[in-house]
Design a protein around this nucleic acid. Sequence first.
DNA 1: TATGAATGAGTATTCATTCAT
DNA 2: CATGAATGAATACTCATTCAT
Lengths: 200, 200, 200, 200
Amino acid sequence: MRKNRPKYKQIIEAAVETIADNGYHASQVSKIAKKAGVADGTIYLYFKNKEDILVSVFEEKMGQFIEQIASSINEKQNADEKLRTLIEMHFLQLANDHHLAIVTQLELRQSNTALRMKINEVLKPYLVVIDDIIKEGTEEKIFRDDLNIPLVRQMIFGTLDEIVTNWVMKEQRYDLVKQTSDVHTLIINGLSVKEVVKED
Amino acid sequence: MRKNRPKYKQIIEAAVETIADNGYHASQVSKIAKKAGVADGTIYLYFKNKEDILVSVFEEKMGQFIEQIASSINEKQNADEKLRTLIEMHFLQLANDHHLAIVTQLELRQSNTALRMKINEVLKPYLVVIDDIIKEGTEEKIFRDDLNIPLVRQMIFGTLDEIVTNWVMKEQRYDLVKQTSDVHTLIINGLSVKEVVKED
Amino acid sequence: MRKNRPKYKQIIEAAVETIADNGYHASQVSKIAKKAGVADGTIYLYFKNKEDILVSVFEEKMGQFIEQIASSINEKQNADEKLRTLIEMHFLQLANDHHLAIVTQLELRQSNTALRMKINEVLKPYLVVIDDIIKEGTEEKIFRDDLNIPLVRQMIFGTLDEIVTNWVMKEQRYDLVKQTSDVHTLIINGLSVKEVVKED
Amino acid sequence: MRKNRPKYKQIIEAAVETIADNGYHASQVSKIAKKAGVADGTIYLYFKNKEDILVSVFEEKMGQFIEQIASSINEKQNADEKLRTLIEMHFLQLANDHHLAIVTQLELRQSNTALRMKINEVLKPYLVVIDDIIKEGTEEKIFRDDLNIPLVRQMIFGTLDEIVTNWVMKEQRYDLVKQTSDVHTLIINGLSVKEVVKED
DNA sequence: TATGAATGAGTATTCATTCAT
DNA sequence: CATGAATGAATACTCATTCAT
């Protein structure tokens, strides 16, 4: 298993740093190799090509990201709490790893369409997690039973993603995690004036 | 005024088509020139450089896009109707111009950070439109008065953007405009079970 | 005769100025046209092509340059005086026209070999003037009778040219004309210790 | 040390040949690479850019040129002999390497001002050699003691340079080295009739 | 004569990938 | 496994010249 070989992780970490520091288009394979402390050719013993490095970066980092969220959610009792946790963990993890935030929100989006399709594949488990929360909320009668699940998922993901991207572009000058409650309320209750589902 | 000369628009249209057909990175200046029916050098009588073509594409197209939305909204009486109109027009315009949808949702995002910053500038008036609706809704007591406006704006834009991007990536196989009501309801009422603000 | 049309001289002067200010390679036809106050296309009513402008610049300027020298020499009585006058006038004219000095010593030399051949043609009358002085000096028994005339001419021209080029490259920070006597003595007497032909 | 790697010299030689055969402006990097038998990209492992190739050509070739002259001079006993040797070696080396003669006398002069400044730097040691001969001649009382050294140096260099350039432009149809004696006499004794310092 | 918009040929340089050692 | 020298495809932009008005 290539992933267990020591240099595999070295290269992945070097790629994240290189991209965060230099930007996507200035992250040549030779730069990544140098930062990883290996020869250029060595990269190709672990990765098929440059795109494979980038997809692997996303897989590794997003795998952890999603797992972390999924496991945090498991401890929660209902969909409402789970949604709040998802939001919080989403923000928390990116707030705690600025390199990762820059790479996922800004730099990797400059990749070509083919790579972006692969990245979407990696994201699928996360979308499933979101879908499951929606379904659970409906079953628990906390959420409406006429929800268009893909649409709701897109709203949730789109909202979180846009918020994080804005935060990164504003050079992370404010506290992202503090937004959790507001975002949660918005998603649960929308904009309208009404009796609000009690929170926390 | 360069924008009034006939070849200016010709080149802009050629750029949109070329990018939609070939993708951002395969859209060489010579390809755009050929599709526009002008010589390569002619491009540079109208645009400073390649980046200027792309920014101008965005300016022209998004300018119309935003104006169209803004004028449609003007005819509406309240924030709720305005929001629904904004959603509908956002979807409608991209649904009616597949090339533009591909270019704005997928291809132009592959541009480097500098170009993306310029693109963000172009989007600002749209964000102001959204902000105004939020403020108006609050004044009309239709929306809550404790809304975090930037956050709400990010939710709305992020939601619409993600929905359109998904639709483009699914190769536009379903009716985007039909989603308007569901999206509107989601944004107004959120996920929760409660008395819903009446929608007609 | 094209040379009598008013814009001809306008363009020639504009070319000299443009080249002196911007350097040979940055002197586009459009820049020259602008400085001359005519349209780009107008240039081609007076000159066959860009090379023709440059050759004409040289012809015009060197024509005057050589004529001036030739007429000054005519007033002198012997080859020694004529040589001194040639040196002095060569230096004087370039010292009095910095633009011309830069153009002839530095910029026009960057032209391709073909153009340089044509420039050499323009210089021929000057070389004849030098040859005549040498012959006269020999006839007057002031100069040796075993002189290899082409070689002597190359020595004289090469010496003057190198001295002026050095002066231009040193940004004309010293008095070129003051060198006349030293140069004259060097050419007449060489380096050796001996009875010197009496000067002035 | 890049200069010791075999391909360095290979590329330098290819550059000289390419420039001599095609002229300065028609000497594309790809042409040089082809003649050197390496890939275009390989050039850039040894040279920073095209200008660096050209400066290096001059450095390498002129380095040898000057060294050869300097070492030949060392064996000579007095300034007069040294000057004659300098002239002879100057002519001899260019006569023996027609490619080099074309490149240094005609082609490399077409370079822009920046490159020409660098080329002048390379020539400085040669000018020092000339200066030293002049000083030595003065000390030996062979040359006058009132010589303006920079001026004399410019005369000597300008003379040799002009003579070689003429010879190259006349397509090297006569024996350059045979001119040595005449040139030497001219420089030592000038044009005037007088008792000549005995030569040979 | 005069204009100036349009033309289109031409080229240095980068960098992902390979492969001999 | 590891190296790193070598490869070579790919592309934006300039500017001398033309020609319809």
